[in-house]
Design a protein around this nucleic acid. Structure first.
Length: 331
DNA sequence: AATATCGGAACATAAACTAG
DNA sequence: TAGTTTATGTTCCGATATTT
């Protein structure tokens, strides 16, 4: 099913660049601009301040406004586009004839999320949660949010493609596309472990369930498969991106960000597709995806898993180096 | 100097979830 | 069912590379 650009309904042709001071429409628009989490300054310093925004904060830069649908040329170039067609950039470069709206992917449906956390009610005033000098993230990370809930729901031990409930989040690059149909949600038993090898990909064992047997297999496969880690990592990375190009059900979809990778499809014989086959996790910890009961337990189990992972990585790295030196001596 | 490339933060919003 | 929360997908900033 070819999805239609889902922004077209209600698509507004008004300029996406509001005049300085005009309120933007998003619910977030009155929220203060968050500094970059790493301390970088907020963006768009060149944009004028909102003249009437003194209440909200004079030092806040205006939010960056995006067009709802960039043209294919601007999208490919990662450059600013306009609602007009042809857009100014295409006109400037004389490619106005190819200035057409890109087609958007339809959002995944059926992703289960688990219960939402609700903020405490007592000091909550209607409408006071937002637009009151504290942006959403600050609120979530601040007084309202227990640390275990917000600050780092999935620290390093968790991959970006699992949500905090141990479910595989939708993989935007279609990594699972060959395995899971769009409407199929991965069942919990498929998720082996929230601890991952350094390549950061989830370890999936279709059909495998918990148990000592599974753990033994995990350990064996760990020994067999982790050894050529470096090659495997690069191979998986390459396949990860090549999957973008070749696993997509949309053969002629517009260029996406990942399309910058114009790598030839040249899988090495030493790096067959099996590498992408879900394998047992390197972790020896529990295979359950049930969230820990308490924050302390969660912390403790994370540390335990992390230390296991670190020692395993060190062990295999040193082993790998030994093997390499042996090989070089022999040759 | 102009243009192209591209990583990743910021943004927008659909969909899941919750409270009333 | 309206409002909230979250995850997903897109836009485009800004740094860097390449070309003219």
């Amino acid at each position: 099913m070819q999805s239609m650009p889902y922004y077209q309904q209600g698509y507004q042709t008004a300029s996406p660049y509001p005049a300085a001071g005009s309120p933007a429409t998003s619910v977030m628009n009155n929220a203060p601009i968050l500094g970059h989490p790493t301390g970088l300054p907020p963006l768009h310093p060149g944009l004028p301040e909102q003249p009437g925004s003194s209440v909200v904060g004079q030092s806040q830069a205006q939010k960056r406004k995006q067009v709802k649908n960039a043209c294919t040329n601007c999208q490919k170039a990662c450059k600013k586009c306009d609602d007009a067609r042809p857009c100014p950039r295409c006109v400037k470069y004389g490619i106005a004839d190819t200035c057409v709206n890109s087609v958007r992917k339809e959002r995944k449906k059926g992703i289960k999320r688990g219960p939402y956390k609700r903020r405490q009610k007592p000091e909550e005033k209607p409408g006071a949660r937002k637009h009151e000098g504290m942006n959403e993230t600050q609120q979530q990370q601040g007084q309202y949010a227990p640390a275990a809930m917000r600050a780092a729901p999935l620290p390093f031990g968790y991959p970006s493609n699992l949500n905090q409930y141990g479910q595989p989040a939708y993989d935007p690059y279609g990594q699972y596309a060959a395995v899971y149909h769009k409407e199929q949600m991965m069942q919990q038993s498929y998720v082996v472990n929230p601890v991952y090898p350094p390549m950061g990909y989830p370890m999936l064992v279709p059909g495998q369930t918990d148990g000592a047997n599974g753990q033994q297999q995990q350990q064996q496969q760990q020994q067999q498969q982790q050894h050529p880690y470096q090659q495997q990592h690069s191979a998986m990375t390459q396949q990860h991106y090549s999957g973008i190009m070749h696993h997509s059900p949309q053969a002629s979809r517009p260029l996406m960000h990942g399309d910058h990778f114009q790598q030839p499809q040249n899988p090495s014989p030493q790096q067959p597709a099996q590498l992408m086959t879900p394998v047992a996790s390197t972790s020896t910890s529990s295979t359950t995806s049930t969230p820990p009961e308490t924050a302390e337990e969660e912390e403790g189990s994370k540390f335990a898993r992390l230390s296991q992972l670190c020692s395993a990585a060190l062990h295999h790295t040193s082993e790998h180096a030994r093997t390499e030196s042996n090989n070089s001596q022999q040759s």
